[in-house]
Structures are given as structure tokens and as C-alpha cells.
């Protein structure tokens, strides 16, 4: 029993010395890396640039969403009035896909938790 404790103690000591080496190495890297704080006005300019980019992206996404929604809605309405069987089939497939995806996500979450 005593021997086991000694081996554990020795291993802990060895680990501690490695951690000290890692800390020293990273500390030296920190000391030798010269990083200058950017000017406040420069950060503000970058923020303004980011905001503009985000707004452009949002506008593009909204346009794309409207276009896709219009296409889907048109196809569905045409199917409903011209061929109700196809319309019912599309509805059924969509519902089945939704259930399958939700079930798959639930299982994945459970596996992750365990």
C-alpha cells in the first residue's frame, strides 16, 4: 500500500514539474510577444465597417428569403388547384421529414448527454 502511495506521489511531482515547465515556456512567450493596443478610433472604424457589412448581409438574406418563400408559395398554390393529390403528398412528405429530423436531433442530444 505504501509503495502505491509513493508511486502516485512521484507521478504527481513529475506532473507538477511538467506544468511548471509549461507555465514558464508560455510566460516567456508572453513576455517576448509585443502586442500594442489599437487606437480607439481605429476600433470604432472597424465596428462601423462591421455594422455596414452586417446590414448588407441582412438585406441580402431578407431578399433571398422573400424570393424562396414566393417560389414555394406559388408552387404549392398551383399544386393545390391543379393537382390536389400532389399537394397532399408534398404535405405528407414534409411532415414525415420534420418528425424524422426532430427525432434524430433528440437522439443526438441524448447521446451527447450520456
Amino acid at each position: 500500500m505504501k509503495k502505491i502511495v509513493n508511486i502516485e506521489e512521484a507521478q504527481n511531482k513529475e506532473f507538477k514539474s511538467t506544468i511548471v515547465k509549461i507555465k514558464l515556456g508560455l510566460g516567456h512567450l508572453d513576455e517576448n510577444s509585443k502586442v500594442f493596443n489599437p487606437d480607439l478610433s481605429m476600433i470604432q472604424a472597424k465596428i462601423a465597417e462591421q455594422r455596414e457589412l452586417a446590414e448588407r448581409k441582412w438585406r441580402r438574406d431578407i431578399k433571398l428569403f422573400c424570393l424562396i418563400a414566393a417560389v414555394i408559395l406559388s408552387v404549392m398554390l398551383i399544386a393545390l388547384y391543379q393537382n390536389p393529390i400532389v399537394f397532399a403528398a408534398v404535405q405528407g412528405i414534409s411532415a414525415a421529414c420534420f418528425i424524422a429530423v426532430t427525432f434524430f436531433k433528440y437522439i443526438k442530444q441524448k447521446v451527447k448527454e450520456t
Binding site: 502586442v35 493596443n37 489599437p38 476600433i43 470604432q44 465596428i47 455594422r51
Partner: peptide, 16 residues
């Protein structure tokens, strides 16, 4: 945005 810039500037060195 100024508040965000101040926060970011304060953490910049640590982050980089």
C-alpha cells in the same frame, strides 16, 4: 459602439 470599443480595447492585449 463607443462602449463596445472601450471594452474590446481593454481586452485586446490579453486576447491577442
Amino acid at each position: 459602439d463607443l462602449a463596445f470599443a472601450l471594452l474590446f480595447q481593454d481586452s485586446y492585449q490579453l486576447l491577442v
